[in-house]
Amino acid sequence: MTDTLEHGGTRRSGTVPRTLGFVARKLGGAAVSLGLVAVLGFFLFRVLPGDPARTMTRSAPVSAEQLAQLRHRFGLDQPLYAQFRDFLGNLARGDLGTSYTYNRPVTELIGERLGPTVLLVGTATVLAVLLGLWLGTRAAWRHGTATDRWFTSVGLTLWSVPTFWLGLLLLMAFGVGVGPLPGLFPVAGMSSPDVPPGVLPRVLDVAHHMVLPCVTLVAVIHAQFMMVMRSSLLEEMGAEYLTTARAKGLRDDAVRRGHAVPNALLPTVTLVFLHLGMVVAGAITVETVFSWPGLGLLTYEALRVPDLPLLQGTFIVLASSVIVMNTLAELLYRVLDPRVRA
């Protein structure tokens, strides 16, 4: 492995301008996408509802006067182009407006909730990717055997289960407890009020709270990664370079680890990142079920009202982060795959 790196270092020097061009193109593309997200955010929450003030107050009776006041407060009494200009200007300064229900800056609310979501989604994604790739590799390598059929059936079944339902079931079985079985894990939130002081007890407490939501997310999303890895490896299985590797006298597992998996991994990486949006969607319902104080729960709270500025904020943040992650993945892919690099 060391020699590859040594050679790689010198080899790439000639392609630096091309790499720079590639990076610039990708970053430019990402910037355009982020711009589109902003425009979409404005369109969805300001233009599409017709009268946002009425939408927000649809569950409570309000007088015409109150409506007018509300419109003035959110700048809705101005012409659309002026609203759009202000929206973009504020966005550039990191100001996402004021929440209708909380009456606090949206940026502040999102900032508070970002940490828990990153913790939960990050942990679950890493675990799901590792588990999915491992299971997918095993299933494909033993293609057609009982192992493969078993893994595939379990994966497909878990993939068909709605995330929130699995969460509710786990919550009932292991949170509340069924029959003689006591509740093993907390049912809501990410920490208990009665934790003894100190770093370790607090970390353990959060981990204890995170078990159920994390298991739920991993169970559903690992299946997708498994199926992708499996079919990607199956596609490589017939490749002639594997016959070459076998002819060289390599052991079966060396052929798999040294030749088949590295090739199959590359398309999988792209797909893993393309499915990040799905993970985000799972996080919204899981956080709702387990009252995990993250962005998902915030979205759920906002859409009940509906608190349009807050929803707009979470939409822009969630969409932008997925775009940023994908751009990083594309840049990473170029480092990983020599065929794209040239």
């Binding site: 020699d3 590859t4 016959t243 070459t244 590797a245 040294g258 590295p262």
Partner: peptide, 21 residues
């Protein structure tokens, strides 16, 4: 084209049987 592994260098692939044997 297909009998060589596309993601490994020529050196790696020639050296591989030397290492194994």
């Amino acid at each position: 084209m297909h009998a060589l592994n596309p993601v490994r260098t020529v050196f790696d692939q020639i050296a591989e049987p030397l290492r194994v044997h």
